[in-house]
Amino acid sequence: MPDYGPRPVERHLPTEEARDLLTLVRDLAQREIAPVAADEEATGRFPRDTFALLSRSGLLGLPYPGAYGGGDQPYEVYLQVLEELAAARLTVGLGVSVHSLSCHALAAYGTDEQRGTHLPDMLGGGLLGAYCLSEPSAGSDAAALRTRAVRAGDAWVLEGTKAWITHGGIADFYTVFARTGDAGPRGITAFLVPGDAPGLGAAAPERKMGMKGSPTAQVHLDGVRVPDTRRLGAEGQGFAIALDALDAGRLGIAACAVGLAQAALDAALGYALERRQFGRPVADFQGVRFLIADMATRIEAGRALYLAAARRRDEGASFTRQAAMAKLSCTDTAMQVTTDAVQVLGGYGYTADFPVERYLREAKMLQIVEGTNQIQRIVIARQLLGPESR
């Protein structure tokens, strides 16, 4: 398969340390991740060794406090790291985003003792996390979840099934949201569940059209006993914790989408400059040039949108609406850009000998995860019109 190589992205970073970090990540991604991405995706191999390397390199805990093994990096920097990783292989970029999401409840709502006990291993000790909110009958309507946690002395017993769980069956820990009270969002509580807890199991991974190297599976909780010391936040606070995490997680998806789109543009540029028809490169034809111009413009706009939202988060300002806008726009961009990349390559773009057909299959998933793009529109409209609007 031809390898045209990535083109460096012009980045505006807040510190020299951040510039050095992005250089390190880019070199690591192109040396360790990109060369094997196509083969491993084709065979459905999850790159656990890559995640161990990222953990040793301090890249699994970038936006979290250094006191607990994190990188003390602002979201503005962390998201650009995700973009570079996703450009090399979406399974890796998305996996880092999901891992960060699964650490959020403990980092933001855990006690000092809980953070000191668990967070260092989660951020830099080689562990891999999963985030368990969705269920077979509660996807977009996450507040309707049925998994239940019943108090049993100084512990809780969890029963239920979670669905569409990235890293399901291979994670070392799961942030699980379960019902401890009445129906509705106020009856939900968050728990930190070890991956080897008795009674916790996973179904066979889903058979997906893309991202075959990233396992997505149902997770079954059959009488899983969790001590109260692993309850995160107050009883009934779980749904608020979940939504808070999703705001940040949607920015992660947006950054991954831009990375995937950038990889597709790079492939299209390389092909258009090399492929000759009618005695000249196809890059000379206006139809191709206009496609490439539109692809590049959409990517730049998406990158600016997710970074603007990230800076609001770093400043401590509300960013729910901006996160939803970034997730919506960037994932739609990834879908359009990967579609156009296939068109630039013509018949070759439809074959597995070139990466753009894989990028197209992967892009579709990004419009669905962590809230479909229809849900993002609901969030944006409610933020603009008020919660009582329909």
Rank of each mutant, 00 (worst) to 15 (best):
L360M: 08
E159F: 12
G69L: 04
G195W: 04
V342N: 00
D39Y: 01
R19P: 05
T111F: 10
P120W: 07
A381G: 12
S318K: 04
F177L: 11
I368Y: 03
G210T: 08
E315A: 15
P8W: 08
A317K: 12
A255Q: 06
R321Q: 15
Q322W: 09
V342H: 00
T333E: 05
I241Y: 05
G223T: 05
R361Y: 06
R382D: 06
F278R: 11
A163V: 06
S389G: 09
P74K: 09
P74I: 01
V98L: 13
H104W: 14
A248E: 01
E41A: 01
A52Y: 02
R19T: 13
T297H: 13
A309Y: 06
T166I: 07
R321F: 02
A304Q: 15
Y68S: 07
I170V: 15
G259I: 02
V258D: 10
V344M: 10
R312H: 11
L59H: 09
T297A: 14
V157H: 03
A183D: 15
R231I: 01
A264C: 03
L158R: 05
M209E: 15
L328F: 13
G195F: 03
H104Q: 12
I188C: 13
D121A: 15
A163N: 08
R377Q: 15
D121I: 02
L54S: 07
A105N: 08
A310N: 12
T161F: 02
T50A: 03
R148D: 09
L328I: 06
P6V: 04
R361D: 03
C103I: 06
Y131L: 09
Q218G: 08
S137F: 08
G93P: 04
G316N: 07
T331V: 04
A234R: 10
D332H: 14
M335W: 12
L145H: 03
G116T: 10
E40K: 02
A304N: 07
D172C: 11
D340I: 05
L94F: 14
A317G: 07
V81S: 10
G125A: 09
A34M: 02
V344K: 03
S318N: 14
I33H: 00
L24F: 15
G316T: 05
L21Y: 05
R390F: 15
A144N: 12
A42C: 05
H220I: 12
S100F: 01
E76R: 11
T339R: 12
K212T: 10
S214H: 15
A310M: 12
G302E: 06
T338I: 00
L90T: 11
R231W: 06
D266R: 01
I33S: 00
T111R: 14
G181R: 13
S318Q: 10
A263T: 05
P198S: 04
I378Y: 12
T91F: 02
A245W: 03
A267W: 01
R151E: 15
